[in-house]
Every structure is written in structure tokens, then in C-alpha cells.
């Protein structure tokens, strides 16, 4: 039993062990943004409807605003901050730039994480597969055509 006060929770973030001291009512998004300073995942709806806070939990795209931090004990979390390696952007990130798959950029980290998860499971997605993957990631600027294009382009780049 934990709480209602703060407790230590240990998990892995972007391949590195991390630990936070949070009460049970704090979400993974709270922990990432406020405890770990990872502000890529955004708080937009804060109730699991928009996807701007999407991160991967054990590889699965997850709304971090609707996930309790304590429930992440021992799990592997991936955020947009962990995608680039040695200054080299992930093909999905590169494709987002090339196709201009954003305007204000606020939903972009969540969109990218959803696409990353899709491409790991599906090397050659169709546009329809991409739609399914990002239908839970709203974009108020309406960058959807670019996002779909970016996902397909990144998949092609990965296959090459």
C-alpha cells in the first residue's frame, strides 16, 4: 500500500533508470514534466482525449495524463526526448520536418510517439494504418495531411 503521501517510484525513462518521489494521485505526465523536466509531452486536455501527452509505456502508445505514476513502477517509458541519438534525429522526426507535419508544434511530440509505435509494429503501413495510429492524437492546427505523409515517408526511409 502506498500513499496518500509521496512514495518512491522507479522506472526507466528513455533507456535510463529514473526515480521520482510522488503521491499516488500524480500522473505519469505530472512526473515527466514536473519531476523529470521532460516537457516534450504536453498537457492539453488532461483527460485522455487529445493525445498530446502520448508516450510509450513498455512500447505501447499511452496517454500519460491518464496513467498514474505509481502504476509505472518497473516499466519502460519512452518520450520524444529519447528518440534522437548522438544528434541524429529519428527518421520519423526527420520526416516530420521534411513534410512540414506541424504548425504550432504543441501536439507534435505526441503525434511522433504514436507514429514511432506504429512503425515498430508495422514496417509498411498504409495510410489507413496511419489514420488508426494517430486518430487519438488531435491537432488543432490541422497538420494531419503532413503527419500522414510523414509517417509513410519515415516508413519508406526505415525500409531502405
Amino acid at each position: 500500500m502506498l500513499g496518500p503521501g509521496a512514495a518512491d517510484v522507479a522506472f526507466e525513462v528513455n533507456g535510463h533508470p529514473a526515480s521520482v518521489h510522488v503521491p499516488p494521485h500524480h500522473t505519469l505526465l505530472d512526473a515527466l514534466r514536473d519531476e523529470l523536466g521532460l516537457t516534450g509531452a504536453k498537457r492539453v486536455c488532461d483527460e485522455g482525449t487529445c493525445g498530446a501527452c502520448t508516450v510509450l509505456v513498455d512500447g505501447r502508445p499511452t496517454y500519460s495524463c491518464m496513467t498514474l505514476a505509481v502504476a509505472c513502477e518497473g516499466r519502460s517509458i519512452e518520450t520524444v526526448e529519447g528518440l534522437a541519438h548522438d544528434g541524429q534525429l529519428d527518421p520519423v522526426q526527420q520526416a516530420f520536418i521534411a513534410t512540414d507535419a506541424y504548425q504550432c508544434g504543441f501536439c507534435t511530440p505526441g503525434q511522433i510517439m504514436s507514429v514511432v509505435a506504429l512503425l515498430r509494429a508495422n514496417k509498411a503501413p498504409t495510410a489507413e494504418d496511419v489514420h488508426r495510429a494517430v486518430a487519438g492524437n488531435l491537432c488543432r492546427c490541422g497538420a494531419y495531411p503532413g503527419i500522414v505523409e510523414a509517417a509513410l515517408r519515415a516508413a519508406r526511409a526505415r525500409r531502405r
Binding site: 521532460l38 516537457t39 516534450g40 509531452a41 504536453k42 498537457r43 518520450t79 520524444v80 526526448e81 528518440l83 534522437a84 534525429l89 522526426q93 516530420f96 520536418i97 521534411a98 512540414d100 506541424y102 508544434g105 504543441f106 507534435t108 511530440p109 511522433i112
Partner: peptide
Amino acid sequence: PRIDGASKVTGRARYTH
């Protein structure tokens, strides 16, 4: 392509929030 694209796709872009 946007000159600030890399900051947006890496989560580095800093917003007021």
C-alpha cells in the same frame, strides 16, 4: 522546411506552459 523544425520534433521547443 522550418528552421525551427528540429526543436519542435525533439520536444526541445519551449512553450510558456
